[in-house]
Simulated assay, not measured.
Amino acid sequence: MRSGMEVPELMTATQVARILGVSTETLRKWRAKRRCLPYVRVGRHIRYRAADVAAFVERGTVMPA
């Protein structure tokens, strides 16, 4: 790994599901449908970058008129 390279925080599906208030099964369905929440495959494990989860929440934010 290069010196000074920042490694993003990776979260499990359980952690992300808790943050978003959905089930891990919902996250699995979103992955199958290629829904807008990017994920990282680490071997057989699925992980989510904290910045991607935050961006997903921001994209879903609706500002009242």
Rank of each mutant, 00 (worst) to 15 (best):
M1H: 10
T26Q: 09
E58L: 14
M63P: 10
L20H: 02
E58C: 12
L20G: 07
V22K: 09
G43K: 01
K33E: 13
R2Y: 07
E9W: 04
G4K: 07
A54C: 07
G21Y: 13
T61V: 10
H45M: 15
P8H: 05
V22S: 05
I46F: 11
T24F: 01
V57K: 11
E25T: 14
K29S: 08
V62G: 04
G43R: 01
K29Y: 08
P38Y: 11
I19C: 03
E58V: 12
T61N: 05
I19V: 12
R59T: 06
V62C: 09
R44E: 05
V22E: 02
P8G: 02
W30I: 13
A50E: 11
T14W: 01
T12G: 07
T26V: 06
Q15S: 14
D52P: 09
V42T: 07
M11C: 12
V42P: 02
H45P: 03
I46Q: 01
S3N: 06
V62E: 06
E25P: 03
S3T: 08
R28Y: 08
A13L: 03
L20C: 09
M11P: 05
T14K: 15
S23K: 08
H45R: 14
V42G: 00
Y39K: 03
R41I: 13
L27D: 08
L37I: 11
A17N: 07
V22C: 06
H45A: 14
Q15F: 00
R2T: 07
M11L: 15
V22Y: 00
T61E: 11
T12F: 00
V42Q: 03
A51R: 15
Q15A: 15
E25L: 05
V57F: 02
M63H: 13
P38G: 09
E9M: 10
V40K: 11
L20F: 06
Y48E: 05
P8K: 10
T24M: 02
M63N: 13
V53E: 00
R44D: 03
I19W: 03
T14L: 15
K33G: 03
L10E: 05
G60H: 15
M1V: 09
R59F: 10
L27C: 06
V57W: 04
G21C: 10
L20A: 13
V40R: 13
V22D: 04
D52R: 11
R35G: 00
L10V: 10
I19R: 07
H45D: 11
M1K: 04
R28D: 14
G21V: 12
L20K: 13
V57M: 11
R18I: 08
R59G: 09
L27I: 05
V42H: 02
I19T: 12
G43W: 03
G21E: 10
G60D: 01
M5A: 12
L27R: 06
T14A: 15
A54Y: 10
A51C: 08
A32L: 13
L27G: 06
T61L: 14
A65L: 15
A13V: 10
A55Q: 15
E58M: 09
F56L: 02
Q15I: 14
S23R: 08
R47N: 08
T14I: 10
R28T: 07
E6T: 12
L10D: 11
S3Q: 13
E25Q: 15
V42L: 15
E6Y: 06
R49V: 02
G21Q: 14
F56E: 01
M1I: 04
A13Y: 00
